[in-house]
Write a protein that binds this DNA or RNA. Sequence first.
DNA 1: GTCTATAAAGCGATAGAC
DNA 2: GTCTATCGCTTTATAGAC
Lengths: 188, 188
Amino acid sequence: MARTVLDRADAVRALAGVFRKRGFDGASLSVVQQETGIGRGSLYHFFPDGKEDMARAVLEEVRAWFDEQVFAPLRTPEDPAAAVGATMRAVEEYFLSRHCVCLYAVMTLGQDRPAHAEAVRSYFADWVELLARTVEQAGVAGDEARARAVDAVAAVQGALVLARALDDDTVVTGVVDRSRRRLLDGLG
Amino acid sequence: MARTVLDRADAVRALAGVFRKRGFDGASLSVVQQETGIGRGSLYHFFPDGKEDMARAVLEEVRAWFDEQVFAPLRTPEDPAAAVGATMRAVEEYFLSRHCVCLYAVMTLGQDRPAHAEAVRSYFADWVELLARTVEQAGVAGDEARARAVDAVAAVQGALVLARALDDDTVVTGVVDRSRRRLLDGLG
DNA sequence: GTCTATAAAGCGATAGAC
DNA sequence: GTCTATCGCTTTATAGAC
């Protein structure tokens, strides 16, 4: 009988998909097993501390992706304005290809899950901070730059909520595009 | 022994509080009983179809509140610009006094809950539509008015996500205030 | 209208064979 | 590294007394 052996990274990716579709509570181990083909044995081999361990791993993977793809252009930008454009485009592409679900928001929004509170906080705080700094470098005054960054991150998250509620991905495209333009408004 | 007899409306309000704090899945009947003092017997008396019935009732109450307090200024505004200001201020006050949680978003965002999909869709669609129409009446061209309305509703929802993640209610104040100004930008 | 006891199902987690 | 069987617990929902 054929048997599939896999990587922890494969398991994390598969888990992320189930969490995105079902939410943390909706992704019972039976559901995970059915939808990914990964059995309880493998799950507890890769994630000895169980479901919380799986959640942590999935959040860490998202965080790593953002560090590399979304935050990287903001860390030492040669052209700050171009970096702002690049980061917003990366974000848009990311969420459009992941059913408009932000796992950090999903883990936070409804539930009382203090275990991940600090990871969630730093994900959003770092995002706002890096974006604000780059907008400032592009020529916007400090307070105004920070307000624009907060507005942009909120716009992205709100667009995800709205896109899912209305079942219309173009909401994300529209909101993110306009948000990107506002970030750099008045900068010739 | 003292016994408390209550109204279905009281039960709905109490349930809304628990759902806001815990999420739908986190609000088990035992938790509901502990935090509200309402026993299983009363719960199933008021909500014969069980938990889904409770969720429906809570969403209906939120919807009714929005119809009366938030959407009302938009239905037949004498002064469209003033109505836009009023609706945004009502929204801000509403969510600030409810721990920055939108139950419609919570029911949608993470979970696969097709039972309420239509209620969620129409809540957001009506909100956007009414706001867009009023902004247009205030003097903004149709397409632009709709884009501004989408941006504003997304901004509110995103502000809630961010405020909870950062544990900072001032995010809501800031984002909503700037959003209100943008809705009426360029209208003397 | 409220209470308590209980049924039936599903949950996360573990153990041990392979 | 994977599988299956099973434990103990919690879940929603129901029944029947008051």
